[in-house]
Amino acid sequence: MKKISRRSFVKAAGSAAVLSMLAACGGSSSSTAASTASTAASTAGASSAAAASFGPDTQAIVDRGVLKVGVKNAVQGFSFQDTLTGEYKGLEDSLAEMIAEHLGVDVEFTTVTAATRGELLDSGDIDAVLATFTITEERKKSWDFTTPYYTDYVSVLVEDSNGIKDLAGLKDKVVGVSSGSTSARALVKAMIDAGVLDGANFDADTFNADTWKEGISFRQYDDYPAISTALSANEIQGFCVDKSILAIYKTDGRSYVDAEFSPQEYGIATKKDSDFSTLCDELVQGWLADGTVESLIKENGLS
Rank of each mutant, 00 (worst) to 15 (best):
K3F: 14
R6I: 07
V10R: 13
A13C: 02
G14Y: 00
G26W: 07
S28R: 09
S29P: 00
A37S: 10
G45Y: 10
A50N: 08
I61C: 04
L67T: 04
V69H: 05
Q76L: 12
L84K: 10
K89N: 12
S94I: 01
L95W: 02
A96Y: 12
M98L: 15
D106H: 04
F109M: 13
F109I: 10
T111H: 13
L120P: 10
S123I: 08
D125S: 15
D127N: 08
D127L: 06
T132R: 03
T132E: 05
T134G: 13
F145Y: 08
F145N: 14
V156D: 01
G163V: 06
L170H: 06
K173M: 09
V174Y: 15
V175I: 15
V177T: 14
S178V: 12
G180R: 06
S183E: 02
A186I: 12
K189I: 00
A190E: 10
G195W: 09
D210M: 12
E214L: 09
F218K: 06
Q220Y: 12
Y221S: 13
I227L: 01
Q237W: 05
R254Y: 08
A259E: 01
P263M: 07
E265H: 15
Y266T: 08
G267N: 06
D273W: 01
F276A: 07
S277N: 08
L279D: 08
Q285A: 14
T292N: 14
E299D: 10
E299G: 08
S303T: 13
